[in-house]
Design a protein around this nucleic acid. Sequence first.
DNA 1: AGGCGGTACTG
DNA 2: CAGTACC
DNA 3: GCCT
Length: 601
Amino acid sequence: MAPTFPPIYLLKWNLEHDPKELHRLEEEIDVVFDIKEAKLVLGKVKLKRRAALELRKLGLDTEEVVTTESEPDTDTDHNHHEEQIASQIVPSAPGNPPAQRLAISPRSTLRPSDETIKVLDLAWYTGSLNAGKLLPIEDYLVYEGRIKSKILPVKPKQTLLPAQVEPRRQISTVSPTQRHFRTGPRKFGGNSVHSSSQPARLLHKTTSEDEAYAALPPIPKYLHSPYSCQRPTPLHCPNEDFLSELRIIKQARNLKGDEVGVRAYSVAVAAIASYPYSLTSALELSRLPGCGSKISKLWQDWKTLGHVEEADEARSDPDLQVLDLFWKIHGVGEASARDFFSKGWRSLDDIVEQGWDRISRDQQIGVKYYDEFLQRIPREEVEKIASVILDYANHIRDGFRMVICGGYRRGKPDSGDVDVVLSHPNENATHRFLVELLESLERDEYITHRLIVSMKNSDRGQNPLNWKGSMPRSRGGFDSLDHAFLVWQEPTWPSKDEDLKGNPDARNPNVHRRVDIIISPWKTAGCAVLGWSGGTMFERDLRHYCKQQLGFKFDSTGVRRQDNGEWVDLEKGDGDLLVKERRVFSGLGLEWRDPTERCTD
DNA sequence: AGGCGGTACTG
DNA sequence: CAGTACC
DNA sequence: GCCT
């Protein structure tokens, strides 16, 4: 069992490079933030002088009290105060429960000339934890000082505990220009998401370490969750400039084949993107999930130096530029990008001239439409394409429902591709439907290429009844969805007829677009909509959450139990696709997140 | 110290 | 099987 | 790189 510690103040010196660790310690130790409340001071300090200096910075002017034989370089020997306190907090018999010996009243204060203050090495704390009891302090004592006088701290010190700050006060202290992201809790879907135990953020001209800590804005409750699917992550956040730097590094790691780094940066980016305040310190950042000492250090550099070295290197590395150029080809990932590079290719022309028949069909299409695929698709065009698809679907079989998913649904002003989920309340209507839909779209020349057509569902059984009958046995692959990944081009353009008269081979000037069409069985269409709407990290965390917290396996084809693979129906009942999506959220024990709050990347 | 999302396609 | 795609 |  953990020993009971007296009130402890933690010196931040030498811990500042690692705000995450600092914060972890502060939480674990349950430190007091006013040194006047502390009975002990812990820190990563080794030298008396440094300890005295740090105390002085906190407003305590001390003179050294000379003590034990373990402090040979001290000069005097009269320290009865210290012995008194030591005997109170150090168990005389190692086996005894330490709490009994803690005669110190927890909130008594240190008084000038009356008491001494002791600075111990942090190792005393960890050692005591390991031992399960308070260790003798002698071996860890770095400095003991008698308080000569209390002086004003070097910088004005925020001594109020968080809860003591009047919540209203900040509104009048924040200037209109500062107000944007700073004032009060922002509302996300009307839920109260903010911790109430933390102060509202105050803006100060000065920022001592303590003040910075005490004045930190509240961590929104949702940011205590490591799962980005439990947090609202809007498209825009107050820290986008810093996020751009992290994304640069992330992509550099990607191109270098550092999967783990990519993941780490993705997690951090997602956490920061859901943080509703403009960051003011590395410490503040380090409280967020996925943001450890490295990310905090990057922030510190970015803030103080104005740039992040690793991001600068990435931007100016010509090899990385080439890898990035290749990586942006549809069908080329980091491995192929580096493969191409290793063949000596440095441009798209090199690929065309030297490697055309050594690359895959997908990659050929990717090279051919390189510029077009990189062009963003405005929302109106996404809607136009989707409505064509829905019209064609309903023309074949009436009653189809559709949701445009992907970045469009997250509210992005433009998209890299178009994702539509189609379903039909009649279970049989979706079976082997995709082929028909594609054929009719092809007949009218909307589709120039098929990149993928996956029809696990429809190929599975010719017979829908058979398929339906085997549903409960659903072990991987039964009630899957049909999926087509296409190259799309609007077949008409204003001057088409004239152009064709002049030249029968006149080129269609419309930009080629990538279009995903998903045909989902009705009973799992909510999962399909959910699975195709979130950002990458949102979806990854959703799966992770289901697995870890619920023992479920989630994907866009449905929810299954992990142990026996049995299908879990979370969408029972009437309602459209969006209602079914909501049912999946609540069935998974998740708060509803609007699609515009799933912008994790 | 170990682990990092799940699935289905192509080649 | 490795690589890439989708989110 | 961070978390468990």
